[in-house]
């Protein structure tokens, strides 16, 4: 197992370097002058231009520019947002909890619904229930999720008037950000109704964001289960006189989980991509919306820093998934 992990870690090095190169090049390939892109100042005197040029180090040879950028990145300096004049890192960590909260809720929904659905479908393979569940999952799989979000708003907010359309919490509450996770902060604040309001705001975006991962998890659980239920060791388990519940819920599921965990890990990227749309639709103040807004505002340093940050997070998570996989798969343990 140690071998697997160290190999994966080694393979990450060139990838990391590549990601830094991409984000370094980003500012230099966008249309327009990098000085303007980095400073956001449009009208300036030539003196000011030279001054900025020097400040950003753009007067240095390219490779020196790169190494100085690499140094900045390693020391945790991801640039400064034009719009807010704050370091990107700071900005990022203010907004990141909102995205994490939303994504975790979505992932939680996807797992607790997706796995049982996949199992039921596998057990009833070819029967009406299976066809029904897989039919619905196909709809979910093909759903443009921004449209799905709009439909939810039309129905639950517009027609029924049950749930709020945007934001993380009703504006009447002022919650001090202790952890950044409103579910926790609202409980800590002790304000009456704050927690409920948080839940109500979380519901629609949570459902919308969970849709694709849920469907993928359900389908993969089903196909893994179908295959496993045909295995010899399942027959052995029945031959031991075990109940169906135990055979399916323990012997089969344990094997299926090895596959499903990998699938769940792969959903992280999908979740972050989905968060971009979901957050835009529900005005959710997370990094997805922030990235889109930054692109709209031509806040290129923010986009550059955000891109780098997000890819680092994706890579870290992928690594953790590989690690978990190695941990739960006895064949890789030794």
């Amino acid at each position: 197992m140690f071998k697997v992990i160290s190999k994966n870690l080694l393979l990450m090095i060139p990838t990391l370097l590549g990601i830094v190169i991409i984000s370094f090049s980003f500012i230099r390939v966008i249309p327009g002058d990098p000085v303007i892109a980095l400073s956001g100042e449009r009208a300036m005197t030539p003196e000011r231009y030279d001054e900025l040029m020097h400040e950003f180090g753009l007067d240095l040879p390219l490779h020196e520019q790169f190494f100085s950028y690499l140094g900045d990145v390693v020391s945790g300096d991801f640039g400064k947002s034009i719009a807010t004049r704050r370091p990107v890192v700071e900005e990022f960590f203010t907004l990141f909890p909102a995205t994490v909260e939303l994504s975790l809720c979505a992932l939680f929904l996807a797992i607790v619904i997706g796995i049982p659905v996949g199992m039921v479908s596998a057990l009833k393979k070819g029967k009406l229930v299976d066809n029904l569940l897989m039919g619905v999952s196909l709809i979910g799989y093909s759903m443009p999720i921004f449209w799905w979000g709009l439909l939810m708003i039309v129905f639950f907010s517009g027609y029924l008037g049950w749930l709020p359309v945007s934001g993380r919490i009703s504006t009447q509450f002022f919650i001090e950000a202790k952890t950044g996770f409103l579910l926790i902060d609202s409980l800590l604040s002790g304000e009456e109704g704050a927690f409920l309001s948080t839940i109500r705001h979380l519901t629609l975006p949570g459902i919308v964001l969970s849709t694709i991962p849920l469907v993928v998890i359900a389908r993969q659980t089903r196909s893994a289960m179908v295959e496993i239920l045909d295995e010899d060791y399942i027959r052995t388990a029945y031959a031991k006189g075990l109940s169906k519940f135990r055979v399916v819920g323990i012997h089969a599921l344990r094997n299926a989980l090895i596959i499903v965990i990998t699938v769940i890990g792969l959903q992280i990227g999908i979740l972050l991509a989905g968060a971009i749309l979901t957050e835009s639709i529900f005005s959710w103040p997370g990094i997805g919306k922030w990235m889109v807004d930054s692109i709209y505002r031509r806040d290129y340093p923010a986009v550059q820093g955000g891109l780098l940050f997000i890819s680092l997070i994706v890579m870290t998570i992928n690594f953790i998934v590989d690690f978990t996989y190695a941990l739960i798969n006895p064949k890789l343990r030794k």
Binding site: G18, I19, I30, L307, V314, N318
Partner: peptide, 21 residues
């Protein structure tokens, strides 16, 4: 490794950034 790099970005985000470039 080039493909790994591309895969490290959430697909839609990468598409957005490329489209914005």
């Amino acid at each position: 490794r080039l493909m790994d790099i591309l895969l490290a970005f959430p697909s839609l985000l990468l598409a957005l950034v490329i489209a914005s470039i």
